[in-house]
Structure formats: C-alpha cells, structure tokens
Amino acid sequence: MVVPHHAAGARRARHRLADELADIVPPALLADLVAVLAELVGNAVRHADPLPGGVVRVAWRLRPAAGGQSVQLRVTDGGSAAGPQMRRPAPGSVDGRGLHIVAGLSSRWGVERDGLGQSVWAEFDPLVSPRPDVLMAG
C-alpha cells in the first residue's frame, strides 16, 4: 500500500492493517501490529524523505508458523542522512521512544537500504516473546 508522507498516511495505514487482519490474527497481536506500524510510519514521516511522489510504501506479509501466524511489517521511505537510531530520551521528553516500542513489541526489527531509499521492518514470530525490558529502557 502507498500512503502520503504525512500523518494522515499513518492513520490510513493503521486502519487498513486493522481491517485486513482483524479476522486473521489474535487481538493482542493485532494491537501490537497497529502500534508498531504507527511508530514506523510516524518515524518515516518525521525523520525521512518521502519516496518519489511524496509517498511512503507500507507492506505486511503473513506466513504460517508453528504456534500461529508470523507477520512482517515493512515501511519504505526515501531515507535520511542519519538513518533510524534508538535514542535515549529524557524522562520528560514527549518523543524518542518509537524504536524502543518497535523493539519491545516485535520479535526482531531492522533496516535495509537500496537505491530507492530505506525499509524499516519488524517481524512478529508467535514463538518469540516480545521484549518488555526494551520498552522500559530509556
């Protein structure tokens, strides 16, 4: 799916993900997927350049796995000079926790770069527990 490089694009992506996966994955997993997608698209809008046409590409893929569905989310944007980095936010800061949320709710995440930009992905494996210790860091 392609969404505008704007906060409205993040909202559209969250709603479509929730609508498409509501009857496929358990509610707790769906909540985590929506939260992580919101962080990834929000980060793309705030910190990265858009793809040509002023857009961000959002994708998800489900695969059967032992214990349920494995899900991968992927957000592709035009990239930024610094690239995604976990920050250590100040206690009163209102931002800087997005990648901690991604790391804490997903089984694993990463960044890939190609000639068009960068993709930040997060995978959810039913046999790998989320990492609440990462959520508490910072």
Results as ranks from 00 to 15, higher is better:
residue 3 V to P: 03
residue 3 V to A: 06
residue 4 P to Q: 03
residue 4 P to T: 10
residue 4 P to R: 12
residue 6 H to V: 09
residue 7 A to F: 12
residue 7 A to R: 13
residue 10 A to R: 10
residue 10 A to V: 06
residue 11 R to T: 14
residue 12 R to A: 15
residue 13 A to L: 00
residue 15 H to K: 08
residue 15 H to N: 04
residue 16 R to C: 05
residue 18 A to R: 07
residue 18 A to G: 00
residue 19 D to I: 01
residue 20 E to R: 14
residue 22 A to G: 00
residue 24 I to D: 07
residue 24 I to E: 05
residue 26 P to F: 09
residue 27 P to T: 12
residue 28 A to Q: 10
residue 29 L to Y: 12
residue 31 A to Q: 15
residue 33 L to F: 13
residue 35 A to W: 08
residue 35 A to N: 07
residue 36 V to L: 07
residue 36 V to G: 11
residue 37 L to Y: 10
residue 38 A to L: 08
residue 39 E to T: 07
residue 40 L to K: 03
residue 41 V to M: 02
residue 42 G to T: 11
residue 43 N to L: 09
residue 45 V to N: 03
residue 45 V to E: 06
residue 45 V to D: 04
residue 46 R to P: 01
residue 47 H to V: 09
residue 50 P to Q: 09
residue 51 L to R: 01
residue 51 L to W: 00
residue 53 G to M: 03
residue 56 V to I: 14
residue 60 W to N: 06
residue 62 L to G: 00
residue 62 L to H: 00
residue 64 P to E: 13
residue 65 A to I: 03
residue 67 G to H: 05
residue 69 Q to S: 13
residue 71 V to I: 12
residue 71 V to S: 08
residue 71 V to F: 14
residue 73 L to I: 06
residue 75 V to A: 06
residue 76 T to G: 02
residue 78 G to M: 07
residue 79 G to M: 08
residue 82 A to Y: 06
residue 83 G to S: 11
residue 83 G to I: 12
residue 84 P to C: 02
residue 85 Q to Y: 11
residue 85 Q to V: 15
residue 88 R to K: 12
residue 88 R to W: 15
residue 89 P to C: 10
residue 92 G to I: 02
residue 93 S to M: 15
residue 94 V to Y: 14
residue 95 D to I: 13
residue 95 D to Y: 15
residue 96 G to N: 04
residue 97 R to W: 09
residue 99 L to V: 01
residue 100 H to W: 09
residue 101 I to L: 15
residue 103 A to I: 04
residue 106 S to C: 14
residue 107 S to E: 10
residue 107 S to L: 11
residue 108 R to H: 10
residue 109 W to C: 08
residue 110 G to I: 13
residue 115 G to V: 10
residue 124 F to L: 02
residue 128 V to P: 00
residue 128 V to F: 03
residue 128 V to G: 00
residue 130 P to Q: 05
residue 131 R to T: 14
residue 132 P to T: 07
residue 133 D to R: 14
residue 135 L to E: 02
residue 137 A to W: 13
